[in-house]
Amino acid sequence: MNATSIAVRAGLKRGLLELKQSLTSPQDIGSNLFFSAILLVAMLFMRGSTVAGTNFSLGSMTLPSVLGMGVASGGLMTVTQLLAIDRDDGTLLRVKAIPNGMLGYLIGKIVRVSGMTLIAQAIVLIPGLFIFDGLATGSLGSWVTLAWVLLLGLVATMPIGAITGSLFSNPRSSGLLMLPIMGLTATSGIFYPITQFPEWLQWIGQAFPIYWLGLGMRSALLPDTMAAVEIGGSWRHLETVGVLGAWAVAGLVVAPMVLRRMARRESGSKVAARREKAMQRLS
């Protein structure tokens, strides 16, 4: 076996180990469950209302949208934060000093974030299936659509997360990214149908992956008649693949350059300086 495939395997193992560490950490489990519980409760309150022009429950329609948002937040937020933390605490420098360590590290991150996103989705979806009526989960097609939207969503969002994570040198300030993402979520028709918004706002929403992830998930889990309330009265699978694919290509082109530039700049004295700063904050 050559060095690259050994590093890839080491990276897969790294990702699974970190995932296991995450699943046995009360802190990680707690925050995951807390977030999912809030979303489920919010949807419960929407169960009584109906989507305008239909008698379909707004709660049932929001469930797949929230899954789509979950993919985006896993790819964008989690990757950004993990990268900023790993840079800050010297993990990145550590792997940089190891042959092919960066390759293994990145593969490990992809495995870990994909795993965490899958688990977070399951925590929302499984109770959701029991709580909400009218979901179209009987056919294989639903699950195939769900799988490709999920996969494409991760490929489209993780490179963007890697880019933003490279730009934040401080993990605390990386939390600021929450604000634009929450703003985008609001304009992406996750909690409220996008067709109710003014047209210019609809265009902004459609420029970013969150809307398309929500739409893709709705197309997987809602009955086809519900396509009528979407823009253009269709699930627009072709457009979904086009926009998410464009984001994926752009991200995969830019991310390696940004990551390489960031990794090149890491050195022992940089990490030491950040440690010094953190110590001063503590004292």
């Binding site: 560490q21 790993d86 605490d89 010297g90 420098l93 550590r94 000093a97 022992g268 990490v271 440690r275």
Partner: peptide, 20 residues
Amino acid sequence: ERWRARLGVVLQSWRDHARW
């Protein structure tokens, strides 16, 4: 990377890999 494999660097650790 072949060159890198022949070097050893002892870094001042801080809190990386704390869960490992």
